[in-house]
Amino acid sequence: MERLYTEQLQVGYGERPIVQDLTITIPDKQVTTIIGSNGCGKSTLLKAMTRIIPHQEGSIVLDGQLIAKENTKALARKMAILPQTPESTPGLTVGELVSYGRFPYQKGFGRLTKKDIEMINWALEVTHTESFRHHPVDALSGGQRQRVWIAMALAQETEMIFLDEPTTYLDMAHQLEVLELLEKLNKEQGTTIVMVLHDLNQAARFANHIIALKDGQLIKSGSCEEVITHDVLAKVFQIDAVIGQDPRTNKPMCITYNLLKGAAKHDQKAIPLHGVRSVSS
């Protein structure tokens, strides 16, 4: 059974539609990346699917139930979301922030149970953030802070984690650190990961499934090989892309590109780049 999907979804702000007539499925226990140009509705879709914002038309279904009618705490036990620029209270420690992930399970005065403490310790351990448990979050580096926020999501003990541009403002090493952590969580814990990424090669490298949007509508969804193609990228980004193959992962990668407007059409069948093999468009 498909756990999470949308049907003819429409989301907007006021009278301005952002996501229009969108029908997609999120594969369970896989890594899905959402790609598209700025303003195409990627973040809006993420927020709607996690019920941060309401949708106007259509439906979002999780485990056979409309999420619009799901109990808030019950929903928070199934999915966690990390926004694009999460912020914490100044002076809040890492341990305190991660403990907030246990909110959906707390009752009464909200005291931490033995299970809560076990989950917090596990989340700190798996994200390698235990060593700065007592450090203020705002004193950490960008990569460390991102791992701490992921730890909070893990402490929430959900089977799905949604992340809106988790590599924004991070250098190349810290980007890989965060993406490899998410990949590890997916492979070892079976966590369903859904994230918005701007870097096409990172999207292809770490995803099992890609959703490409333009102007709030679905252009293509499927495997990396089905989505990272010359024709799809031309429709989504208006670029004339040269697609090759990553020599380490064998997945498609965008080697170079020109703006499609006024750009000459190039032969995509042969790309002599240090043995990198071309993927035909």
Rank of each mutant, 00 (worst) to 15 (best):
R147K: 11
S141Q: 13
T129K: 05
P136F: 14
T129W: 11
H128M: 14
T127G: 03
V126I: 14
V126W: 06
S141P: 15
G142M: 13
S141E: 11
V126T: 10
S131M: 14
W122L: 11
Q144R: 13
L124T: 02
R145W: 03
V148Q: 05
V148T: 13
V137L: 10
S131E: 10
S141Y: 09
A123T: 03
F132N: 06
H128R: 05
T129E: 10
I120R: 07
H135S: 02
G143Y: 04
A123P: 12
H128G: 01
V137K: 02
D138M: 05
G142F: 11
S141K: 08
V137Y: 07
R147H: 11
S141I: 08
S141T: 09
F132C: 03
E130Y: 02
S141M: 08
V126R: 11
R147S: 04
T129R: 01
T127A: 15
E130M: 04
P136K: 12
P136L: 14
T129I: 08
R133Q: 15
P136V: 07
T129Q: 02
W149L: 15
H135G: 01
S141N: 09
V148A: 00
N121T: 10
A139C: 02
W122H: 05
A139W: 01
W149E: 12
H135I: 01
V126L: 11
